[in-house]
Amino acid sequence: MTTLDTTPAPVARGTTGSVTTHRAIPMSRIITTELRKMFDTRSGFWLMASIGILALLASAAVIAFSSDAGMTYSAFATAIGYPITVVLPIIAILSVTSEWSQRSGLTTFTLVPDRSRVIAAKAVACVGVAIATILLAFAVGALGNVVGTTIAGIEPVWDLTVSNMATIVLANVLGLLVGFMLGVVIRSSAGAIVGYFVYSFLLPTLSVLLASSQAWFRDLQPWMDFKYAQGTLIDGTVTIQQWEHLGVASVIWLLFPLTVGLAVVVRAEVK
């Protein structure tokens, strides 16, 4: 089959085709195409651009309002990191839910009928975007630290260890995956975004309330409270037991619902 024939053949050559000679669509091609789809709409573009804009604004705010003693690399990283932890999950949510809410899934799942490959490609693309974004944020923060301390006429303080930077990346990737999971489970943009705020604000509050009033939950909380377990990643030093807490909480709040959501997506009707 001469599929790559470039001679202009305006209408199909009209054979039923020797299907067996077609090679399966490689995973790399699905990933790069899904990555492209995250940027090629106006909303997608501005969502990505907002990260850069917010990072610059946050750096400027630290330079403008921070005391000399407070102007450290971690102060910049924290200020820049906060908007990112909100925007990244939304990017992940929309990359999944737009296939349903915009109904483009009708084309996507017709061109790539194995839906689990599409979802996997989206997950890889989202994680790639998350890592690239946070590395960019670290770079902007470093720039801000140099510029800010130069303006203030003080020595820059580099108070983030490489391992802490790595755990911050991990925390953001987990946050993004929560958004991704909610997108797969709920498959509606508005619903998944509401779900994300329930997940990241309401549930942790309930968990704290429960732990303060119920003795039996107090010991369980580290294992059950996903946000609590993630908090240690931002702070830096993570003990073996905290890794265990994180692992258990991730299985409960991330892996399990994601598995259920995937099973539904693969079978669900696309309309």
Binding site: R103, S104, T110
Partner: peptide, 17 residues
């Protein structure tokens, strides 16, 4: 393996982003 090369499908022209 690559359905787009075998079947052209148009089910709903409005189902696009």
């Amino acid at each position: 393996p690559n359905p787009g090369l075998v079947v052209g499908v148009l089910l709903d022209a409005s189902a696009q982003h």
